[in-house]
Amino acid sequence: MYGRALAPLALGTAAASAVAFGLVFFYAPLDADQGFIQKIFYLHVPMAIVALLGFLAGGVMAAMHLRTRDRVWDMRSYVAIHLSIILGLGVLVTGSIWAKASWGHWWVWDEPMLVSFLIVFLLYAVYQPLRFSIDDPGRQARYASVFAIAGAAFTVLNFVAVRMAAAYTHPRVFSQTGGNMPADMFLTFLVSLGAMALLFATLWTLELASKNAAERLRRVRRRLEREAEHAEAGERLARPEPAPPIRPAAASR
């Protein structure tokens, strides 16, 4: 059911990534202040945007699960959040590298996007421990969905709070990445963002396809085992087993 979309998605991702790489290295101009390291922007920011949208999408899918009671939506939400956590780690690492290169520190507290991202990442880091410490599958799906919805709402609220704190304690405007970007940089950024979004969609589809296939395989295997048992039982009925040997009585009794 997910397998059919996989091939075009994968091809699209490969093509978009190749174009994005080409644009980043041969088309986008070198940043006047930051030089070559600024190119990490085309990896860091798309990754952050896609990861955040992944968390939000996970929340929406979780809401669909609670509304429709269809476990498929929980699986979709789980895979989206799981991928976003992996991307989130990438965001923190690339952000850290960028901070070291342009500000001289591995971590800076006055970049509200990065700080908010850390907080959101710390929250979602508990998603999997929560999910897998609940045994009952139905309850696991419901609890994970409640977490995903609350987490998505929190993500938005948290950005507001951190931005407000930064606005009051560090009264300066961060327009390093937004707004007034030259057109060639902006185009490169958009293509990189598209490539990252396609990569996310491909991985999401791939993981769902594999989970789906594993589930179907398990079902088929269970049915075969049951049929084999039935056949064995039928054979036994037709040809009664020899009576079990009479055991000698236990010595101690």
Partner: peptide, 24 residues
């Protein structure tokens, strides 16, 4: 409350969630 490691999951879940309150 319904998880196996509830003494761990509870605090780990609550602390990031209250960051906005700590900020304000």
């Amino acid at each position: 409350a319904e998880t196996r490691a509830r003494e761990l999951i509870g605090p780990l879940l609550l602390l990031p969630l209250v960051v906005p309150l700590a900020i304000a």
